[in-house]
Nucleic acid binder design. Sequence first.
DNA 1: CTCAAACTATGATATTTATCATAAAATTCA
DNA 2: TGAATTTTATGATAAATATCATAGTTTGAG
Lengths: 225, 225
Amino acid sequence: MSNCEQCIVREFSALKVLEKGDLLKIANCKTSFTVKKGKNIFEEGQNVNGVFCIKSGVCKISKLSDNGKSHIVKLITKGELLGQRSLINEESLNLTATALEDMQVCFIPKTEIMGFFHSNSNFSMEVLRNICEDLKEADNDLVNMAQKTVRERLAHTLLYLQDKFGTDSDGTLKIQLSREELSGLIGTATESCIRLLSEFKKDELIDLIGKKISIINEKELRRIE
Amino acid sequence: MSNCEQCIVREFSALKVLEKGDLLKIANCKTSFTVKKGKNIFEEGQNVNGVFCIKSGVCKISKLSDNGKSHIVKLITKGELLGQRSLINEESLNLTATALEDMQVCFIPKTEIMGFFHSNSNFSMEVLRNICEDLKEADNDLVNMAQKTVRERLAHTLLYLQDKFGTDSDGTLKIQLSREELSGLIGTATESCIRLLSEFKKDELIDLIGKKISIINEKELRRIE
DNA sequence: CTCAAACTATGATATTTATCATAAAATTCA
DNA sequence: TGAATTTTATGATAAATATCATAGTTTGAG
């Protein structure tokens, strides 16, 4: 059992407002585990009795459409909490979380978390703030999806991936998505996405090194997005 | 100054969990006003120092895209609260609210609402629950927008409008949106929307009576959506 | 290491959707 | 009321995107 008080990822989530005593309580009841690349942390439709705190690694949060295709709603990385929404609404999960790389995850049981909601109004306000942020983000995504072309969304997404996850020393995006996953994030057919990547390369906006992508003309991409 | 305790619309929002004393406080500090059809209750970018409680009428919540088109994020009707997100995040408003019919609206100042957040954990939990519901809804909308065709989205939207607002005695949808507004809700060009409505009429799924729409083959529309 | 499976890439084509043009119908307001 | 404006409607066309087909490439299991 490791110490939550000293866990740095806590700084990025609502857990940052908890006091020493509360953190000790969490440390005593949490469970830690690893999730292998490609495995699900949880799946749409499941019931879950707590929240997941991402200690390391990246996962995709996706949702199946009626037609069977899966759309990636967002990407989550260290420090963020997962499963809060379902906990609060007492509903089954509406999204699936799948590891894109090996991950370390902690699970904090419902009872403990719900206690904080009632005993610590700083904590509930902080969770509320985070969820409001998600909601604003979701509104933005919806409008982009509705009004932008696939080309614009691809440019936007590449810039977003660079902003959020950074680049390796060779300049390629640190996060590595398959073309299919990138398509699922943008909301388009895989072939269309691949074709546009090729176009972007021809126009010298990006470079394709094997399956990795590097942005070489950020300014122009920002003009397109 | 009218009585909040006896206001029926309260039952539909987080205000339903407030006690007599709190409601009296609101009644004493709220302001009521009417908003004429076509006028904005508030606009994207404004700062607002409270929440709006919709007493009657319907408004559209929209957001401008970079290309200047406005997308309708959702429709709001009596009993719902507006502006909570910006209040909680202490940010300017990210959406515009425009009356689709004459409305009666109450405004409750920030100081009063924020007080409840700290003094009444039932209230904060209820607000939290509502916002979580909005978030789930937003995820659904995003996936629909990403994966469904315009035709499917139109079918879905017509059914949604019937479910949420009902029909007049002649069977036409009670809520009356212009074709442009309907397009803004679906996320398509106005001409495409009009064309699909004509197609739906030809296929005897709907009837068009002037500008009003009535659903005549709900089963088949549900199959399409 | 090798071969099957999965992923990436690209061409050909079909379908969907947007845009532009124009006209009819409805609404507004002076 | 009637002219001007806005909204609705539809055709013609262009552009964007999806789908189908196929081949090259990479990956990973055995």
